Amino acid sequence: MPSIASVVDHTLLKPEATHADVAALIAEAAEVGAYSVCVSPSMLPLAVPPGLKVAVVCGFPSGKHTAQVKAFEAAESIALGADEIDMVIDIGLAKEGRFGEVQSEVAAVRSVVPAPKVLKVIIESAALTDAEIVAVSEAAVAAGADFVKTSTGFHPAGGASVEAVRLMKRTVGDRAQVKASGGIRSLAVALAMIEAGASRLGVSGTAAIVAEETGAAAPPADGAPGY
């Protein structure tokens, strides 16, 4: 059975992150066998070993950018070598029931992220009702998203939950995949997210989870809040 790291976007999105920090992130991702690294757009371009993907956030973390700004940011990241874009919706639009506008902003970003580049849509599930989760997931799929993603990991409402992942997967079915992120700090939680329907995980403490999986000694914690 492959290591859980093979479905992990190894993530560093702290505002104070340096290029040296990102270099260390890449080295650790390669060592544990992560699927990708997920970083801020200002860190591009990156030199990564063969097989390691580069995911970049867009409209992060608030989502309160215009669709045109998000599309420009995504296009620039793609031009600088990103393989995947993780965009944040305008959560306020969802709270107002303006799901057509959510679909339009996702479509604007999708238009500059051509396949086989991957578009993940962060819906900030902890800030939404179940009905809103269903509606924004439908809007994202209708606009061509490859994934719906739970969280930025920065919202005070919280991160991923098993219930949200299960609802998102039930909504999108085989039309899209689900990424769980925000607060995944143990092997048990990671496995629960996968069991609920997530096929990708956003994790900052990947090495600790892999150590738990293999029974090796966990590396020292850096004291940073978990993604």
Rank of each mutant, 00 (worst) to 15 (best):
A67Y: 10
V112K: 06
E76R: 15
I184G: 03
V121C: 10
D222E: 08
A218H: 03
A34N: 04
R166C: 07
G33D: 12
S204G: 15
A145N: 13
L187A: 09
S77P: 12
L119Y: 04
V56W: 04
E73K: 13
P225Y: 07
A139W: 12
S137Q: 10
L12S: 12
E163N: 00
P15D: 14
P116N: 03
A190W: 04
L119E: 08
G153P: 02
L167C: 07
E132S: 03
T171D: 10
R200G: 01
V22A: 03
A190V: 13
R98V: 04
E212N: 07
H10L: 14
G215L: 00
S104I: 05
A17T: 08
G205P: 05
S36P: 04
L187F: 04
S36K: 03
P116E: 03
V172F: 03
F147T: 10
I194E: 15
V32T: 05
G202I: 05
A188G: 01
K117T: 11
A29W: 04
V7A: 02
D21S: 10
L93P: 05
P116F: 11
F72E: 15
V48A: 04
E163D: 01
D90Y: 07
A135M: 10
G182I: 02
V148R: 12
A131R: 06
V32D: 01
G63S: 09
G223M: 09
E73H: 12
G215N: 01
V141E: 02
G215I: 00
E163Q: 00
E213I: 11
G183P: 03
T66F: 10
V69E: 14
G51P: 08
A208K: 02
I194W: 12
R175W: 04
A24Q: 14
P220K: 15
G215Y: 00
H65C: 01
V112M: 05
S3W: 11
S137C: 15
P219R: 09
A23G: 05
P49R: 03
G159H: 01
S42N: 13
I4T: 02
P50F: 01
I85H: 07
V88I: 06
Q177F: 14
T152P: 08
E105I: 11
F72V: 14
